[in-house]
Design a binder for these strands. Structure first.
Length: 478
RNA sequence: UCCUCCUUAGCUCAGUUGGUUAGAGCAUCUGACUGUUAAUCAGAGGGUCGUUGGUUCAAGUCCAACAGGGGGAGCCA
């Protein structure tokens, strides 16, 4: 019977009442042949288990090694030592699983994140990663709570799709055809009529188009699922498989959309602060130590907790694309020719430009609206000026683009015209266009990259460290 | 994919203008100690120096290619 165990989190939160308890967990360190730091993942804090002298066999004590799993029965008492309020005086210790100290790769010391990335199957057993994944869970839960409380419907959009119309990037092909002997058409191309679905299919790059179909009946929906991009991106902020949240709302204009996105981000951060205080404080401390290694000029001005508090207590800056370009052109960085890429109206802003706006000029999240239509997707609503669309991107310090969204083009003729201009196959998209043919309504939505949100909240600088098993070019181990 | 840096013990790293037997801390093992907080102290074991090829009397050190990783960029969320 295992379920009589007390979770370490609950045990540490209570007062010591000299009761006997059962605890189970993994050994973090065994100090002085007398003190076991035991962790069961329920909290970042370890339970100190005290082994009284002479009470246990030498042979048993030798087996209490880093990462061995234990079942401990003992009395909860006030701690004699400093550093913890209470501890468990062991009456019996059962080794559930040995851990050979010679072979176990992690030690009770600081490891580099790069090293741990290569040990992704064991990195959950470190303070940093257990904290990150508890925060990640908490944020995922908060996503559902936020939308549920607002009456949104959680929509499961397909993972496998035939549509590649959005043009959001290279796609992974899904097929059951044999690689070496695929059926061919007369012109030598592959005959997908013989494939599993009778047509070429891919892994989804976005659930938005399907989301719009549901939103134009259920009013407010959101999706939260995996998304796949076969781009050869080797950066600290890209994954080939990542999770995205895409709300889609009927009867919302661009401003409603911005308000929702800002409220959503602040809600997630607040939820984490309220529910993951210990983990965030640990991560903040970790980050502080990392910052100390950097030269003074590169250090961030705010600690993690400070940054999160600042974001939830201040309004996001809202500017138009045109204003953004004006700010960049007027900036000292531009005048001193510090930018590698030129700035003028019509450009797709580069990372350096976005970072200047967010990290140097405004020093807080910025919502940029009204981008030139040439650099944005076909479905975005065209503004009256004929040049811009009702797009909005939310740029966050250290992360870049966290949210990308828009009011959607609900006018059939305008939409079809734009699709033809951008060589989107209008006929294939008949199902999407039907929403504009039958009872079309103004609507809007956005996509939020979940891992980037987790990065922002945990302060982790590499996206590969906020997803359990990262999928990146040349890496699908575990 | 491009630019750039890196790859030496299980981990983090040192290794001089190319020159004998490649070092340190931590970890591991053995022993000591026993209210410790990444415990401490003493001793021991542990390396085809990323791979392949080249230059040289001699390569961890110089050159090339490849592989893996970091940082930056592009694409994007």
């Amino acid at each position: 019977m295992f379920n009589k165990r007390v979770k370490i989190k609950d045990l540490l939160a209570a007062e010591p009442k000299n009761e006997e308890v059962i605890v189970m967990g993994w050994v973090r360190t065994f100090r002085n042949n007398q003190f076991i730091a035991l962790n069961d993942g329920s909290t970042n804090n370890n339970l100190q288990v005290v082994v009284e002298l002479g009470l246990f066999d030498e042979a048993l004590l030798k087996r209490i090694t880093t990462s061995a799993s234990l079942k401990v029965t003992g009395e909860v008492v006030a701690s004699l030592g400093k550093g913890q309020k209470l501890e468990v005086k062991a009456r019996s210790i059962e080794i559930l699983g040995d851990s050979d100290g010679e072979k176990y790769p992690l030690q009770p010391k600081k490891h580099s994140l790069e090293f741990l990335r290569e040990k992704a199957h064991l990195r959950f057993r470190t303070n940093t990663f257990s904290a990150v994944f508890r925060v990640r869970h908490s944020l995922a839960f908060a996503v559902h709570k936020f939308y549920n409380d607002k009456g949104f419907v959680y929509l499961h959009t397909p993972i496998i799709t035939a549509s590649d119309a959005e043009g959001a990037g290279e796609m992974f092909k899904v097929t059951t055809l044999p690689f070496d002997n695929a059926p061919k058409n007369e012109d030598g191309s592959i005959n997908f009529k013989e494939d599993f679905f009778g047509r070429a299919t891919n892994l989804t790059v976005s659930g938005q188009l399907e989301g719009e179909l549901a939103a134009t009946a259920l009013s407010e929906i959101y999706t939260f699922g995996p998304t796949f991009r076969a781009e050869n991106s080797n950066t600290a902020r890209h994954l080939a498989e990542f999770w995205m949240i895409e709300p889609e709302m009927a009867f919302y204009d661009l401003e409603d959309n911005m308000n929702l996105a800002e409220e959503f981000i602040k809600y997630l951060i607040r939820h984490a602060i309220e529910n993951n205080k210990d983990d965030l404080e640990f991560l903040a401390q970790r980050l502080d130590e990392e910052e100390k290694q950097k030269p003074q000029a590169e250090r961030s001005e705010m600690g993690l907790m400070e940054k999160l508090e600042f974001v939830i207590n201040n309004n996001f800056e809202r500017i138009t694309y045109t204003e953004a370009i004006d700010i960049l052109i007027a900036s000292p960085a531009f005048k001193k020719k510090k930018f590698k890429y030129d700035v003028k109206w019509g450009i797709d802003m580069q990372s350096e430009h976005e970072r200047y706006l967010v990290e140097k000029h405004f020093k807080k999240p910025v919502i940029v609206t009204g981008y030139p239509k040439e650099i944005k997707a076909f479905y975005m609503r065209q503004n009256d000026d004929g040049k811009t669309v009702a797009a909005m991107d939310i740029l966050a310090p250290g992360i870049g683009e966290m949210v990308g969204g828009s009011q959607r083009e609900e006018r059939l003729e305008k939409l079809e015209e734009r699709m033809r201009e951008m060589h989107i196959p209008v006929e294939e998209m008949w199902w999407y266009l039907d929403t504009r043919r039958f009872g079309t309504v103004p609507h809007a939505g956005f996509g939020l990259g979940f891992e980037r949100m987790v990065q922002f909240v945990t302060g982790m600088t590499n996206i590969r460290d906020v997803i359990a098993f990262p999928r990146t070019p040349k890496n699908a181990e575990f």
